[in-house]
């Protein structure tokens, strides 16, 4: 589904990714963990070309996406992204947020788009908020709305960049529950998170990134109970 080959990314003189390779199979949930500044977000952002790789290849369903000929807008429709700070459109209602891209990009008619939006709002438990503007929503509600917005494009893959880091603790769970449900339905997901409980429960595989490289990779049981690299051990000793 996703294959990343020897991915490098530099910002000016700063080399942030130093050869990252990974693969995500259809229906798999990959969790990326690692210290701040290690390059986790940059990996995700390269996968939907919000950042352009300096070197290396990224394939989605066999198609090389960092290619001059690739239709980037088509590719992004297949890859949904959920941001730490939600990035909802503040000047649109909940339903407006969800229907904008289907209507403008997929040329869906308004009625169909709204039917889909209502179904998604129900799915994330926000059907009573369809006419609310984002300012009127709590953090957890905002993030659930952002997930619904991304799902409306019917993506094949969902990328989550620390979706619960900006939330008050009591709201983390409602967002993680939506993500769990999504994983159970077979959605392919790449999740950057510090929620180790979520990783243990939902991840098929976990990778530990430090200083722009994948230090260690394995099933959650392997990685959490028996980390091999000293860097991984040190990271766990700090956060657990």
């Amino acid at each position: 589904m996703i294959r990343v080959d020897n991915l490098h990314k530099r910002f000016g003189n700063l080399e942030v990714l130093k050869g990252v390779s990974l693969e995500v199979k259809k229906g798999e949930v990959l969790v990326i963990i690692g210290p701040s500044g290690s390059g986790k977000s940059t990996i995700l952002r390269c996968i939907n070309l919000l950042e352009e790789p300096t070197k290396g290849d990224i394939y989605i369903e066999g198609e090389k996406i960092n290619d001059k000929k690739a239709d980037i807008n088509m590719i992004r429709q297949k890859v949904g992204m959920v941001f730490q700070h939600f990035n909802l459109f503040p000047n649109m209602t909940a339903i407006g947020n969800i229907t904008l891209a289907p209507i403008k990009v997929k040329k869906m008619d308004k009625k169909t788009a709204e039917d889909i939006a209502i179904r998604l709002l129900k799915k994330v438990g926000l059907e009573d908020k369809k006419d609310a503007y984002p300012v009127k929503l709590s953090g957890g509600q905002k993030q659930r709305l952002a997930i619904a917005r991304a799902l409306a494009m019917q993506p094949d893959v969902m990328l989550f960049d620390e979706p619960t880091s900006a939330l008050d603790p009591e709201m983390v769970k409602e967002v993680l529950n939506v993500m769990k449900e999504l994983a159970n339905e077979g959605m392919t997901m790449v999740v950057v998170t510090h929620e180790m409980g979520f990783a243990k429960e939902v991840a098929d595989r976990v990778i530990f990134v430090d200083d722009g490289v994948i230090v260690e990779e394995g099933s959650p049981e392997e990685l959490f109970s028996n980390p091999k690299s000293p860097r991984t051990k040190e990271f766990f000793s700090k956060i657990l």
Partner: peptide, 12 residues
Amino acid sequence: GQMEASRSLGMS
């Protein structure tokens, strides 16, 4: 973030 969210949804 508004531009990024829009682009990530496939908008030009």
